[in-house]
Design a protein around this nucleic acid. Structure first.
Lengths: 114, 114
DNA sequence: TATATATATAAGCAAATAATTATATACTTA
DNA sequence: TAAGTATATAATTATTTGCTTATATATATA
């Protein structure tokens, strides 16, 4: 099986991060599309600081990376993270979440910039 | 892909439980062998109530089942749990932990009863 | 340049978590 | 039956988590 090993302490740390429905869903969404903070705010009906703080935890451990595009900061999965091979397998076990972004598009609140 | 779907809230709940190194390692060990509380106490160098409380969380959600054998209560993976297909795939991503039980056998503190 | 928008971060607080200590229960054995 | 062993559970406490509110920074636009 082609698979990088991950230590138990590291995997527990990853599971802990994923043990929050907001962060878990965020990652699953990012697995499909880049997203900016305000989109997450709308998707999760949460406050902007709350979303920012969740993202920070994902960023601090290197799971996501950020990229400013004009006014917005877009987040995406960091494919170069040492944990990427691990989390991608976890995310593959979860149901698709792309209808969440589709809803934003229908409402016209999906942020497009480029 | 033959795979039972799991809702996001349920999976976040599972990840949260697995987001503790003691519980995660317990499950990985139980994936191989039944174990009793005193063995975990020795493996993790933890207090008996602390181990019991971790096991309780795994048991409350149905991931493990218990079976009394004389003086001891042995725990094992509950293969009939609705989450079994999910956690087994998670556990397969983790490194083997069977050397932990082997150490007990070498020291002669592995509990044998039947 | 002033105002608005998007985001990050700090401080404060309530709830959840994980440990410890103390105690109760069940079984085994002398 | 009394003492010892294995385990569960309750109470307490320190720490962590995740939210809110307040504020700062960066960019866009009028």
């Amino acid at each position: 099986m082609l698979q990088t090993t991950i230590e138990m302490d590291k995997s527990a740390e990853i599971f802990k991060l994923l043990g929050n429905e907001t962060r878990l869903t965020m990652l699953k969404i990012l697995d499909d599309h880049d997203c900016c903070v305000c989109e997450f705010v709308e998707i999760f009906k949460a406050s902007q600081p709350s979303i920012s703080q969740h993202i920070r935890k994902l960023r601090d451990i290197g799971l996501v990376k950020e990229e400013r595009r004009g006014q917005w900061i877009f987040y995406s999965i960091n494919e170069y993270s040492e944990f990427y091979p691990f989390i991608i397998q976890l995310l593959n076990l979860l149901p698709q979440q792309n209808e969440k972004l589709k809803e934003l598009e229908l409402k016209g609140t999906r942020v497009q910039c480029e």
